[in-house]
């Protein structure tokens, strides 16, 4: 399969070189090779190289450049390729990490997604990235993980958007980093926004019931059960639950079929 992909690209040698460098963990060298490719062949060449890269390799590469450090790949990867690579982000998490340090995992996921989305000020690119990522199940879950780390802000924002529309909303009582990210989604792609909210609050019916976070009912639930929440309220999924959901969506290796398929010819 890797050979297949590399041959399709116009720069098979560079693709293979970068794949190997990433696999050996030498992301700095891979970055240097990309840098050279930009000098020699221009931005578009690198876009193509990244496109041809297998998504799990792209994911490894991108995850080496989170937050502080910026990679060329962060700026140049195509929205579709990034969306595919997101599927593999959770591949290295194990059950113990999810159990014991969900915040750290969510934090690294946030750094990654925020880094890619806000690496450049190109709004069209940001909209395309959001759109592609949120037309996948895993992308939707990944964004829901981020939202779950600031659940009260998200509830406030969701109610605000429900009441006043995405363009008017946005004044929240908090300056959490998640708010601009959430607003960017709600403003560029309303469907995407609804999908993430649904992933986070599967029981929410706008106008019918009220959003609640788990932490809320721990706080006041014990004192006054009846008033704090009713069983109809939409209680959000926790970060941990969502991390497990995301981990489960990492694609496994497909068994190669012996059967010879007609492929796209079935539509001819």
């Amino acid at each position: 399969m890797p050979d297949n992909n590399a041959e399709k690209a116009n720069y098979p040698a560079i693709s293979r070189q970068i794949t190997e460098l990433v696999l050996t963990g030498a992301t700095d060298h891979a970055e240097a090779a990309l840098d050279e490719a930009v000098e020699q062949f221009g931005d578009l060449a690198v876009v193509e190289v990244l496109e041809a890269m297998e998504p799990q390799i792209a994911s490894m590469y991108l995850s080496a450049y989170d937050g502080g450090k910026l990679s060329l790949a962060t700026l140049l990867i195509s929205p579709k390729a990034w969306a595919m690579s997101l599927a593999y982000f959770a591949a290295i998490w194990d059950a113990e990490q999810i159990e014991e340090e969900p915040e750290i995992l969510a934090e690294s996921l946030f750094a990654h997604i925020h880094g890619v989305l806000f690496a450049s000020d190109d709004l069209d690119r940001r909209a395309a990235l959001i759109h592609e990522a949120l037309t996948t199940d895993w992308g939707t879950t990944a964004f829901a993980v981020l939202f779950s780390t600031a659940i009260n802000e998200i509830i406030e924002l969701a109610n605000d958007i429900q009441a006043r529309g995405a363009q008017a909303a946005g004044q929240t009582s908090s300056d959490h980093d998640i708010v601009p990210l959430a607003l960017a989604i709600a403003r560029t792609d309303a469907d995407a926004w609804n999908r993430v909210l649904f992933e986070l609050f599967p029981e929410w019916q706008p106008g019918e019931n009220k959003l609640l976070s788990m932490s809320d009912d721990h706080d006041d639930g014990y004192e006054d059960d009846d008033e704090a929440y009713s069983y109809e309220d939409a209680i959000g999924r926790t970060t941990q639950e969502l991390l497990i959901r995301l981990r489960k969506q990492v694609p496994g290796k497909a068994k190669a079929s012996k059967h010879l398929s007609m492929g796209d010819d079935i539509f001819s």
Binding site: A83, T135, D137, W138, F267
Partner: peptide, 8 residues
């Protein structure tokens, strides 16, 4: 070709 293979 017609729907989207990336969501359930």
């Amino acid at each position: 070709k017609f729907t989207n293979e990336r969501t359930a």
